[in-house]
């Protein structure tokens, strides 16, 4: 009996982490291995030739100019989304944490930010159409008050529409971690700074912002993952007229070209992991968790 306890004590950490390890192995590591294998199989234009190994799917990615175009487009949209969601998310989180006094009001307003998530992603996306369409509310207003003679076509089925939807939906993913880290900032720190004559700008720049770094990092990782993997919003709101890596992959999958799609997925995964790894090196995320 004593021996059993000793064994348990010795391996208790192992026991405790085992559910997570098993889950991750089964549902994350396993599928990734399957995708790696698939990406190395030959595709003959109609069928996947199981067990016929080739690097051709990867070769194609690295020899086509489309790859560069797609990654540039994905990167551009990612950057714009990051900047705007950060500005919005930071401002909202700051307002909730520092400008509001009552905890109940804070929580209530925070929950209000979650309201858009009560509907499905597709509905959230499609709901933009009556606003942005040629005959939509915005265009009726624009033409009605004489700002433009013609309805603005760039509002819908464009990169603009996609970005708008990204910002609408992903701001929360940036705001929530920021809210979390800001709420933990010791108010005495800010008092002390103020007593020592620091201006509001200085407090923001020298105290709050540095202490928010882990929140920024986590929010950024969320937004990177969401933008890099999206193809539904692109399909609906750009009308399949913007080409990103995920959208190209979706087309390959639709045409049941699994091996080339798997290779595209692996390279995209690698790119995202590199970005995330870079962020983790810059910011010690764990310190604040």
């Amino acid at each position: 009996m004593a021996g059993l306890t000793a064994i348990f004590n010795r391996y208790s950490t192992l026991f405790q982490i085992s559910p997570l390890v098993i889950t991750l192995t089964l549902f994350l590591v396993g599928p990734v291995i399957v995708i790696i294998i698939l990406s190395l199989w030959k595709f003959d234009g109609f069928m996947t030739l199981e067990g016929v190994w080739t690097f051709r799917n990867y070769e194609k990615i690295f020899t086509r100019s489309l790859t560069v175009t797609n990654y540039l487009q994905t990167g551009k949209m990612l950057l714009i989304t990051l900047v705007v969601t950060f500005v919005l998310g930071f401002t909202l989180a700051y307002f909730l944490v520092f400008d509001l006094v009552k905890l109940r009001t804070k929580m209530l307003l925070f929950l209000l930010c979650v309201v858009p998530f009560w509907t499905s992603a597709v509905i959230r996306t499609v709901a933009w159409m009556p606003f942005l369409g040629t005959e939509g509310i915005i265009n009726q207003a624009v033409v009605g008050i004489g700002l433009s003679d013609e309805p603005l076509k760039f509002l819908l089925f464009s990169e603009f529409a996609v970005l708008l939807s990204y910002i609408q939906i992903f701001t929360l993913f940036m705001m929530a971690p920021l809210f979390n880290v800001m709420a933990r900032i010791n108010k005495d720190l800010i008092e002390a700074a103020r007593d020592n004559g620091a201006s509001s700008i200085q407090i923001l720049w020298n105290i709050i912002l540095p202490l928010c770094k882990p929140g920024i990092a986590i929010g950024t990782i969320f937004v990177i993952a969401l933008v890099a993997s999206d193809f539904t919003t692109i399909r609906i709101l750009s009308g399949s007229q913007v080409g990103t890596v995920a959208a190209s992959m979706a087309n390959q999958i639709y045409n049941v070209q699994y091996p080339p799609a798997a290779a595209t997925a692996m390279i995209l995964l690698l790119a995202v992991l590199l970005l995330v790894g870079g962020i983790m090196r810059l910011v010690d995320v764990r310190r604040q968790l």
């Binding site: 489309l66 175009t69 797609n70 487009q73 007229q241 080409g243 959208a247 190209s248 087309n251």
Partner: peptide, 11 residues
């Protein structure tokens, strides 16, 4: 065809 179509999408 799919590769070229993706170029059309990205253009």
């Amino acid at each position: 065809l799919t590769d070229r179509w993706n170029e059309f999408m990205a253009s």
